[in-house]
């Protein structure tokens, strides 16, 4: 049990998927302008990543390894993720239209969110078992959501601040992200 707890703390804080492993930076820059879209994206990622992590691990363990098809991993995984995202999109369009509108272009882009695909690959490359996969996928997604929401809060404040003209836009976002990553380094002693 303590192993899983340690893994969770590590994935959320110490080895944060966004700030320490550099995965999922496009949506990080893209949807962190407003708190509600950031929260929606975070929710979408938690949902999709949990499902994708578990499903890809199952496929890898029972099909690809069994039939010696490991070289097809990349193609199979990305197709599973694409299908899942399509499903989530259809579901949100029907059930939660405001959220669907808010996420706009970035919902289909969850397909090309490196965080999702990256975690699925890490799961199988590190030979995790089923429980480890589940814990790692969920906590990585939470770590991603946490960083995204914090960033959205910072950027909402920054909208009213006076920023030097050449730093406007993505430049200042990246530098802010750098300092956020630095503060997350403070968790290094915990695990």
């Amino acid at each position: 049990m303590s192993d899983y707890l340690l893994m969770a703390v590590s994935a959320i804080f110490v080895n944060n998927i966004l700030l320490a492993q550099y995965l999922g930076n496009c949506p990080f820059v893209g949807v962190s302008k407003k708190m509600d879209t950031a929260a929606g994206m975070a929710g979408g990622v938690v949902f999709v990543l949990t499902l994708a992590g578990v499903i890809t691990w199952t496929i890898d363990f029972f099909l690809l390894r069994h039939f010696d098809l490991v070289y097809l991993r990349t193609i199979v995984f990305i197709l599973v993720i694409a299908a899942l995202v399509q499903f989530v999109e259809t579901f949100l369009k029907k059930m939660v239209p405001p959220l669907y509108k808010g996420l706009g272009i970035f919902l289909p882009l969850i397909t090309t969110n490196c965080a999702i695909f990256g975690v699925c690959i890490i799961n199988v490359r590190k030979d995790f078992n089923f429980m480890e996969t589940l814990v790692f996928s969920v906590t990585s997604a939470i770590g991603f959501g946490l960083a995204l929401v914090i960033m959205a809060g910072l950027r909402e404040r920054m909208a009213t601040a006076r920023i030097p003209k050449i730093m406007e836009g993505t430049a200042v976002t990246m530098i802010t992200a750098g300092f956020m990553a630095l503060s997350f380094f403070g968790f290094l002693g915990m695990a």
């Binding site: 430049a171 990246m174 530098i175 802010t176 992200a177 750098g178």
Partner: peptide, 12 residues
């Protein structure tokens, strides 16, 4: 990692 973000920010 933080250096990567800051460096890219400065280039931008």
């Amino acid at each position: 990692a933080p250096g990567a973000f800051v460096c890219l920010g400065l280039i931008l």
